[in-house]
Simulated assay, not measured.
Amino acid sequence: MANPPKKPGRSRAEEKAAQQARREARREKAARQAEALARERARRKLKERLIVGGVVLAVIAAIGGIFWYQQAKDSARENAAVPANITDEFALATGEDDAPRTVEIYEDFLCPACAQFELATADMLDKAAEDGKVQVKYYPIEILGQYGDYSKDAANAFAVVLDKSGPEVAKKFHDLLFKEQPAESGDLPDKDWLIDRAVEAGAEESEVRPGIEDGTFDLWVENATEHAFEEGVTGTPTVMVDGERFEGGPAELAALLG
């Protein structure tokens, strides 16, 4: 390729020097651009690492927080207050320990089917227990919490009454809660309503109000519910006769118990 014409007044040596200077300028510019690009790439990589690191730390923190919360909750449940006058940690028992038959009933105070079963069998079971034919164990649990706090509040109130007023009053309170059971839909009764029913069953308001209002046995209710699940309970009412699941109705149960 022919060399560009020399500019007037410049010697060949000057022209070569000018060309060399232009080449050096282009190389320096290219070097600066490459350096700037490298810095930008490094900055982006650092930013990406910080973002990823931040996400990882957040995940670790979240996992740690969940783990800590679960550990704290498990510890609290392990040390949950247990009501006095309880049988097998979670039940109210009626009838003698040496009765020839045992009936266990897992129930939620908001469960309509539980109320139907209780109303149909209460007199029969009470008489069978009184006659020494059976020991009946009532296990209140909470499986209808999706409707609000009533299930847990009622089970806690039951535990408070059992603790403060004894098994006889607790059984009356138990029966009253099913006789006056609220509907799942709509506004559910508050703790004052539960206190009124406890007093109606024979409890002293001054003795049961603090525990019902404060949820003294809420963790016990959670433990009772977990125990029920471990026993294979998947719904309420679940009835066990002599340790075996009973699938019949009130008439079949009466016939079985004689």
Rank of each mutant, 00 (worst) to 15 (best):
H227M: 11
L110P: 08
E222L: 11
F67R: 15
T94M: 13
L219V: 10
E222P: 09
A36K: 14
D108Q: 02
E247W: 12
E184D: 08
P182Q: 05
E180W: 07
F117S: 02
F246R: 04
E15G: 10
K45Q: 14
P83K: 00
E205H: 02
T121N: 00
G148F: 02
E184I: 08
V59I: 15
A170H: 05
G248S: 08
I212R: 00
V134Q: 03
E104T: 15
R197G: 00
E200P: 05
D153H: 09
Q20K: 15
L119S: 09
E200A: 10
Q116V: 12
L194I: 05
A99R: 04
T236C: 04
K191S: 07
E118A: 12
K6G: 15
Y147K: 07
A224N: 02
G235Q: 12
P250D: 01
P237E: 09
V52P: 06
Q33S: 08
Y138E: 03
D126E: 12
S151L: 03
L253Y: 00
A13M: 12
K16L: 14
I63S: 09
D131L: 08
G9P: 08
A62C: 11
T234S: 15
G248I: 02
D98Y: 04
N79P: 06
A122M: 09
D98C: 06
D131K: 12
A76W: 05
R12F: 14
A91T: 07
E252I: 03
D74S: 14
P210K: 03
D187R: 14
A154Y: 01
A93M: 11
E35F: 11
T234Y: 08
G248P: 06
A13S: 14
K179D: 13
K29H: 13
D123Y: 02
S11T: 14
S185N: 13
A129N: 00
A183I: 08
D74K: 13
A91H: 01
E107M: 14
L176A: 07
L188M: 03
G65V: 08
R245I: 13
A122D: 11
A115L: 10
P167S: 12
A80T: 04
G235R: 11
F178R: 04
E14T: 12
Q70H: 11
E222C: 08
G211D: 04
G232R: 06
D163T: 01
A122T: 06
K179L: 10
A113Y: 11
E40N: 11
Q19S: 15
D108K: 01
V55N: 10
T225H: 02
K7N: 14
P100Q: 10
D175R: 05
G202F: 01
A84F: 05
P8Q: 14
G166T: 03
A113I: 07
A203L: 02
P237V: 11
K16T: 13
R209N: 03
A99S: 10
F173W: 03
A91C: 04
N3P: 13
R12T: 15
P189H: 03
S185V: 12
A58P: 06
Q116W: 11
G258Q: 12
F67C: 11
K152P: 06
A159F: 01
A17N: 14
A113R: 09
I63E: 06
E252M: 05
R77H: 11
V239P: 02
S75Y: 07
V241M: 10
L57N: 00
P237G: 09
A154V: 06
M1E: 13
L256S: 01
S75Q: 13
E130W: 01
